[in-house]
């Protein structure tokens, strides 16, 4: 299959299923808490409704506030295009270099933070300060964790790192701490438990929701879609490292194209059930307790790296 087609298919599939993933995790969490919960397709309706709604822009804001939704969504879309989520070896795969991926995620976080501060409210500022802290302190953990995968797979692109996915992990068990670290980073980057509470009713404890508090209408839809896509990207990435089956490549025929959405939906569903279980079984950390979380993640990554380097020497 054509590499350009692979990337296109991947972006379309991920963006299409991203709201579903959010719907599934909400529904499963509600079930685990003994509630009935909203229908799993509700996020689609939310996005469509928001797109049709009139937008209210704060008088305190500037052009940065209006530019941020585009940049935030663009970085989410770009990470959905370059990472190996539905297909490997797409035309954008060389751009999945770990430094580039970290840079793209950071760019999105930066504009989210700028938008939160631009609204001039205390909630936005509070959320921005926390988001910036989380992004800044997770950066070393992210780089070290991806470096361990790079060392294991011999490639510094995430696309190449999947070469050791699945059974390859068992022959290099020293990568497992890095996998755990990547899980912690995924929770932190996506503003999930135990770093942030995505469904709180109290603005004071929010991170992500506090920053987008002033958005409404289509801009809020873009921001929500961006965070849904980002969640789906991380979920698929983690699943693919553990189970790299069913990925499209340049070698697969056009028939596999029909199966790709189904495989992706199953992977996303499994990841979201797991996420709901994780989130329902732990309490949110106090914000000032987060350094342990960051350094724990960094330590796991470093452990992998050190073990991997020793394994290489032996």
């Amino acid at each position: 299959m054509n590499p350009a087609l692979l990337t296109t298919v991947q972006v379309v599939v991920v963006v299409t299923f991203a709201p579903l993933a959010t719907g599934v995790v909400r529904r499963v969490k509600a079930f685990l808490q003994g509630r009935h919960g909203p229908p799993v397709l509700l996020p689609y309706w939310t996005l469509l409704t928001l797109m049709r709604k009139e937008m209210v822009l704060s008088t305190s804001t500037s052009w940065v506030f209006r530019a941020a939704p585009y940049v935030v969504l663009a970085t989410a879309l770009l990470s959905a295009a370059v990472l190996p989520l539905v297909a490997r070896g797409g035309i954008a795969a060389p751009l999945s270099h770990m430094v580039v991926v970290a840079g793209i995620w950071m760019l999105g976080a930066v504009f989210l933070v700028l938008a939160g501060l631009d609204s001039a409210g205390a909630f936005g500022g509070m959320g921005s300060s926390r988001e910036m802290t989380i992004s800044a302190f997770l950066e070393p953990a992210l780089i070290v964790t991806l470096a361990s995968f790079a060392l294991a797979s011999g490639s510094s692109t995430v696309d190449g790192m999947l070469a050791i996915g699945g059974r390859g992990l068992l022959s290099r068990p020293w990568v497992l701490p890095a996998l755990a670290s990547l899980g912690l980073i995924a929770l932190g980057e996506n503003a999930r438990y135990p770093v942030d509470n995505p469904a709180t009713h109290l603005e004071l404890t929010m991170v992500h929701e506090a920053m987008v508090l002033e958005y409404s209408g289509p801009y809020l839809a873009l921001m929500e879609l961006a965070s849904m896509v980002k969640l789906a990207v991380f979920a698929l990435l983690l699943v693919n490292i553990v189970l790299p089956a069913g990925l499209l490549t340049t070698a697969t025929g056009i028939v596999a194209l029909a199966a790709a959405p189904l495989v992706t939906a199953v992977k996303l569903g499994a990841a979201m059930v797991l996420l709901a279980l994780v989130e329902s079984s732990m309490a949110k950390l106090r914000f000032y307790g987060l350094p342990e979380y960051f350094f724990g993640s960094l330590f796991l990554g470093l452990t992998s790296l050190a073990l991997g380097l020793f394994a290489g020497w032996l």
Binding site: M51, M55, A122, G217, P218
Partner: peptide, 13 residues
């Protein structure tokens, strides 16, 4: 289907 209608108001506080 998306709208371009925009209104200005102060930040919610």
């Amino acid at each position: 289907g998306s709208t371009l209608r925009t209104r200005r108001s102060h930040t919610w506080d």
